[in-house]
């Protein structure tokens, strides 16, 4: 997702300069397809049970009404188990499927494309525009939002009596567990969410143990590249934390704001470079980039960026992938 930033920059400049023609930028997000191909990913699908009742919970609505607090500090009271859910945010869509509640989803954002079943659900808009009319006509009883949205859209839908739970991007695994726990509680599948969380915790421990005491190779994670500008996971980002947990020394750890430069990259000349398939391909061909030692010596690796950028159940898989790249053979 972060890779889109490059395109956005260009689009933004055009937008602002030719302000009357502002609408040109609107096509950008739609054209840019997401990196992730479900087949590339590791074990995430296997964690998801068949859609159906959560075995650990008594059937029916005995737990309801419940009240939960979302990231905006709003208290949302649910009288019954939500039956018609819209998810605007790829992370939430993944979590809902992982909880086995994918059949309750009646709407999703255009960017929710994992697991593949999600694509069969009606898209109700992208990050820029929500089609309110479509959302209302789907008659949802609950909307989860993690992606961009406007206050106005939210307020409008709340005025129409639809519950909205907003979930912020998080900066730690702890935050992701909380999110999963929250959604589990709301969707009456707490046992399932506990299982996912403990599986993830387990994986994180495994990763930590594997890299403990090992030398830390310097690493550069590609977010954006080439003519769209060089962007990386700078120190404050969650991906930077994951690189650190996976036993890497992020060369951009000391700066913030995503922005980087090829010059700086050449100066630091990291041991290992990690990026999307496209990034790897570009680095191998583009002048400047191909002169980097890591590229010349074959230490540039592709990863599905969704594993690191979508803050859902696959995040721990992403961490393990990073460990495999940074410290091959360290995982039993």
């Amino acid at each position: 997702m972060r890779r889109k930033i490059g395109l956005f920059t260009i689009a933004a400049f055009i937008t602002v300069l030719v302000i009357a023609f502002n609408a040109c930028a609107s096509n950008v997000p739609a054209e840019e397809s997401k990196q992730g191909k479900p087949d590339d990913t590791s074990a995430a699908t296997s964690h998801a049970p068949e859609n159906g009742e959560d075995a650990g919970q008594p059937a029916g609505n005995s737990n309801y009404p419940i009240a939960v607090t979302d990231s905006k500090g709003r208290t949302i009271r649910l009288e019954n188990e939500p039956e018609r859910i819209i998810s605007i945010g790829p992370d939430i869509t993944e979590i809902i499927f992982a909880l086995g509640k994918g059949d309750k989803l009646v709407g999703r954002s255009a960017f929710c494309d994992y697991p593949p079943e999600a694509l069969e659900i009606t898209a109700v808009g992208d990050f820029y525009e929500w089609n309110l009319e479509m959302i209302v006509s789907l008659e949802p009883d609950l909307i989860f939002v993690s992606a961009m949205n406007t206050e106005e859209n939210e307020k409008k839908l709340m005025d129409l009596g639809i519950n909205i739970i907003f979930i912020n991007k998080t900066e730690s695994f702890g935050g992701v567990y909380e999110t999963i726990g929250l959604i589990g509680k709301v969707l009456n599948s707490e046992t399932r969410s506990e299982e996912i969380i403990s599986r993830m915790k387990n994986d994180v421990e495994k990763a930590k143990k594997a890299v403990d005491g090992l030398d830390r190779p310097s690493v550069y994670y590609v977010v954006g590249f080439g003519e769209y500008g060089d962007y990386t996971a700078t120190g404050e980002t969650f991906i930077a934390k994951m690189l650190d947990m996976a036993g890497g020394a992020n060369i951009a750890a000391d700066i913030t704001g995503w922005s980087y430069s090829l010059e700086k990259l050449m100066e630091k000349d990291p041991d290992i470079i990690i990026g999307s398939e496209d990034a790897v391909k570009y680095f191998r061909e583009a002048s400047g980039y191909k002169e980097l030692s890591a590229v010349k010596e074959g230490r540039i690796y592709a990863i599905d960026p969704d594993l690191l950028e979508i803050q859902g159940p696959r995040l721990s898989d992403g961490l393990l992938e990073l460990v495999k790249i940074l410290h091959p053979g360290s995982l039993q």
Binding site: A25, E129, T150
Partner: peptide, 13 residues
């Protein structure tokens, strides 16, 4: 993203 979205102008809400 929010800024771009705002400047585009719309009646969607």
């Amino acid at each position: 993203d929010y800024i771009i979205m705002w400047t585009m102008g719309s009646f969607s809400s």
